[in-house]
Nucleic acid binder design. Structure first.
Lengths: 198, 198
DNA sequence: CGGGTCGGCTAATGCCATTAGCTTAATGGC
DNA sequence: GCCATTAAGCTAATGGCATTAGCCGACCCG
């Protein structure tokens, strides 16, 4: 008898991933575990396996979510602007996302073992993010091989800055803002006469 | 009776850390475990605790080793050169280290919880690495606040590039070389007229 | 010779991921 | 309306791993 009212947690893949992403942001991506996700829902750990294949799959799912969110934000920021304006908006969107969602962002960084099928959607999502960067750079008149190089340089700088900031590798927040703006501005100048760079 | 000839593994903190670093390079920093280190030495896991305090401490020790090695390499590369020459040498040394020792490098990136006493030596070692970067930038006549900004930008770019490369985020190796050189060259141009940047 | 420390060990604990197999509620076909 | 199927929870069991406690032999120093 009874045991009624199981409160039917009503899990779903989406809800599980969302909770995992929140946990990653709060406690760090490395600290993410099925046990913690289960605790959030008041559910036994094995129940989660009805919705995700493994802890690794859950991590990959969080990474995919993050790449999509980040791409979306970048796109919104860059739309309707060009050159300096677009570059600053793009860069600020990027940094903003990493600051708001450090755990999710950390997930995107995880090295992909070559041939890992679980990472494939993520790679495709990353291509889309790259397209946004390309669009901004084309606004500077950069094309061809130089476009690839410039995109890599820009992504490296944003990525590196975000990570070092997240790792506490810098100092006072005010100072960090200034350094970030300086970096983006220098990039703008660099891109203005990139044409002959290679 | 017997059990003679224990082959006396002769562990030491240094040897344990060295083995851990090698393992991290081969299988990835995340895959590092006390169990694997113990297996390398043919020793029971708890024996390791006579030499390191915990897995976390071992990770921190690997990070410290890596920062020191990297700093040393950067210093050697930059000595006796200036400006463009120094910049390229520094950047190549950085990338070279990350390629040779991806696991060790990953260790250096781990976020430091503020107030973590275990991370303190690492932070001091990082300061030393920063000094090398400063030295190169001073060669461009950059000083004061701009020096801090420029150093952060440069470090971000190298760090970001290295990580994205390690994560397989780019494509063909030949192309990646070219992109890296292009980035460093662009940086050189940027630094040449950095003075008024902020 | 005798005590102490050093560097191994075994045993035990507890957390976590994962698998197997059970149960119950909803669903859909006849 | 009833049965079969499936979906979504559960408990139990397994095995890897980090960590702690406490034993024990070898070597060093008096």
């Amino acid at each position: 008898m009874s045991q009624v009212a199981r409160t039917a947690p009503g899990l779903s893949r989406e809800r599980v991933v969302e909770a995992a992403a929140r946990l990653a942001d709060e406690e760090g991506f490395d600290a993410l575990s099925l046990a913690k996700v289960a605790r959030v829902f008041g559910v036994a750990v094995p129940s989660l396996y009805k919705h995700v294949e493994s802890l690794d799959a859950l991590r990959a799912e969080v990474a995919l979510l993050a790449v999509r969110e980040l791409t979306d934000r970048m796109r919104r920021a860059a739309v309707g602007r060009s050159r300096r304006e677009a570059l600053h908006a793009l860069a600020r969107a990027y940094r903003g996302y990493v600051r708001e969602h450090p755990g999710r962002y950390a997930a995107t960084v995880r090295a992909v073992r070559p041939g890992d099928p679980m990472a494939e959607p993520r790679l495709r999502a990353l291509d889309e993010a790259l397209e946004v960067v390309y669009a901004v750079l084309r606004g500077y008149g950069i094309e061809g091989e130089g476009l690839v190089d410039a995109a890599r340089a820009l992504r490296s700088a944003m990525h590196g800055f975000a990570l070092l900031e997240a790792a506490g590798g810098f100092g006072m927040p005010r100072e960090v803002d200034r350094s970030f703006e300086a970096m983006v501005q220098a990039f703008d100048a660099m891109l203005e006469r990139w044409s002959g760079a290679p």
